[in-house]
């Protein structure tokens, strides 16, 4: 059985793979493929954020009473990454390679240091505090994250 840390970390890696696809295509000047891949990446990340913000974080906050703690920081970083993704998507739409590389590079580092905090600190805390809910929570996260699922998709 998956715990929250494994399940959510796996989704981080899936997003990384699609990010790399978009980067490969953009570097090769294949704008159509790059836009399509970045579109899939963008959607996958938004579903991941959605699952965290609508299910995981509220459950954690409810259980621990920590509303202004780590989840608040993570929400703030989600806002920053949403802006960077919009910026990168706009650069791709304009076929502006330099602007895309700059914002994608910034996005990658922002995203990875965010993932690091979640995977090393927040998810282990979730597994610890939400131990009795993990069994029901993981399938709901799965439904939210899979393409076609989720309220916002």
């Amino acid at each position: 059985m998956h715990n929250i840390r494994e399940f959510m970390s796996d989704d981080h890696r899936r997003c990384d793979d699609v990010f790399a696809e978009a980067e490969q295509a953009a570097a090769a000047g294949d704008w159509a493929t790059a836009q399509a891949a970045f579109g899939r990446f963008h959607a996958a990340v938004l579903r991941h954020f959605g699952a965290e913000e609508s299910l995981l974080f509220p459950a954690f906050e409810e259980k621990t009473g920590m509303r202004m703690g780590p989840t608040q920081v993570m929400r703030g970083e989600h806002v920053q990454m949403r802006e960077l993704m919009d910026e990168a998507a706009a650069a791709l739409a304009a076929h502006d390679g330099e602007r895309y590389t700059g914002s994608a590079e910034t996005l990658l580092i922002m995203m990875q240091q965010h993932n690091m905090k979640e995977e090393n600190v927040l998810y282990p805390m979730c597994d610890q505090h939400l131990v009795e809910y993990v069994e029901s929570l993981v399938p709901r996260l799965q439904a939210e994250i899979s393409p076609g699922g989720g309220a916002g998709a």
Binding site: E87, G102, E105
Partner: peptide
């Protein structure tokens, strides 16, 4: 004000 990206 949007921050300049890393390459900038």
């Amino acid at each position: 004000l949007m921050a300049p990206n890393m390459k900038k």
